[in-house]
Write a protein that binds this DNA or RNA. Structure first.
Lengths: 231, 231
DNA sequence: GGGCATTGTAACGGAGTTGTTACGGCTTCC
DNA sequence: GGAAGCCGTAACAACTCCGTTACAATGCCC
């Protein structure tokens, strides 16, 4: 996703440069702060999409900043801790941090974690207040119940729509068969895999281009289904 | 962490005093028992955060107490063994002890081990809430069930995923074969080492670079497996 | 009442998964 | 040095799971 804004807080110039360089190379817009106070000043003016926060800071430390942020906002926070400082991880996660990375870390690990956190946040947004859903050529409008693929409208039966709706609301998350059966059909339907199987098949017939190799509704053998993933 | 409660079981008053003094000085609350029976009586009333258990006890010995505890609870257990008694170490770990200390030991070693075990437990608590896991080039996302090694996605079968998931949730802790079999396969699978062996092998084929010298899933001969080295 | 859409049930074949067994290397213990 | 135990590896067979298809039951609208 292009241009998402990330605030990096670290007093070690070496790490600040490392993180900034890699994030910018990956296409993010990066802001920097060297102290907790500086970070709060920036945050008061402008809320980024993600904060990367070193625990060890002079003055107001990472925990303090994390707590202050959580008083007013739910933006995702990744903490940077010294490797082996397990109690820092525990404390950070209790304060509401979304993830942590142990120093030293590789650029690959950094980007993987950032992407993972942002992906979850984007999906959660879609699930919540959004009234429409888009994934590739698939488009849903939750208000009008209209579903289109490559611009062409697709007629879905009520059950098919409920299934797709639940999948879309939890896009990117693995949904077990029993979970789907309970949420789409009702509590008495746990274990009734046949209905789910057939309904998924019917849905795919209408949505997928090549239903042999489903693009949207992906099977996880022995587990359940998932709508879309990254990419 | 302040005020965690530790039960010490030893029939030698000299050690009992030594351990109690050092633990209390470090800020722990300490309970004492001189026999296995006494320990079980106390445990029936109140579950501490950690048990330190001498192997050599009159009557019901340390192994017996350890086994009885494990029937009902997963609280961490540290065994005290005579130095050089390697078979005691293996036996203890097999019974589900979390660590062992060879007598005689220094106060420093005692406190280091206690802290290490408690740290792992606290981490495991948090690991439950955690939605991702990283160790070296291995990355897991628990929501999407995606596993990547060096950025490349790895396809795991349901059983392989459950095994890796349990190993990751208890990273750094020795997991006995029976524990793995019970938690990943089910209660009826204790003693069925073959399945575990083969599944571990298949997992390594997919994860490890050089499966001859495993980097992630390490074997502890006669005991079980561990994901990631002890700190 | 007849036609149509929708939904649940049953059956089958194939792909992938899983448990079993066997064998050989390695270590450990007498 | 031989026996026993443990582990990794390989191949095999049974099985599970899923997609697919056909069919029956239900409800709805004209």
């Amino acid at each position: 996703m292009p241009g998402e804004h990330i605030l990096v807080v670290d007093d070690e110039p070496r790490y600040l440069r490392l993180v900034r360089f890699n994030l910018e190379a990956a296409g993010y817009r990066v802001g920097c702060a060297a102290t907790g106070e500086e970070a709060l000043t920036i945050l008061a003016k402008q809320i980024p999409d993600l904060v990367i926060l070193d625990v060890m800071l002079p003055g107001l430390d990472g925990f303090g900043v994390c707590a202050r942020i959580r008083e007013v906002s739910m933006i995702p926070i990744i903490m940077l801790t010294a490797r082996g400082a397990e109690e820092d991880k525990v404390k950070g996660l209790r304060l509401g941090a979304d993830d942590y990375i142990a120093k030293p870390f590789s650029a690959q690990e950094l980007l993987a974690r950032v992407e993972a956190v942002l992906r979850r946040v984007r999906l959660a947004e879609v699930a919540g207040r959004q009234t429409s859903f888009t994934q590739g050529d698939l488009q849903m409008d939750f208000l009008t119940r209209r579903v289109t693929v490559r611009g062409k409208e697709v007629r879905l039966s009520p059950t098919e729509y409920r299934l797709l709706h639940y999948l879309a609301a939890n896009a990117g998350k693995v949904l077990t068969q029993d979970d789907l059966l309970e949420k789409v059909w009702g509590q008495g339907y746990r274990g009734e895999q046949e209905v789910l199987r057939v309904t998924v098949w019917r849905l795919r017939q209408k949505l997928e281009d090549d239903s042999q190799h489903p693009q949207y509704i992906v099977t996880l053998s022995g587990v359940g289904y998932i709508l879309g993933g990254p990419t």
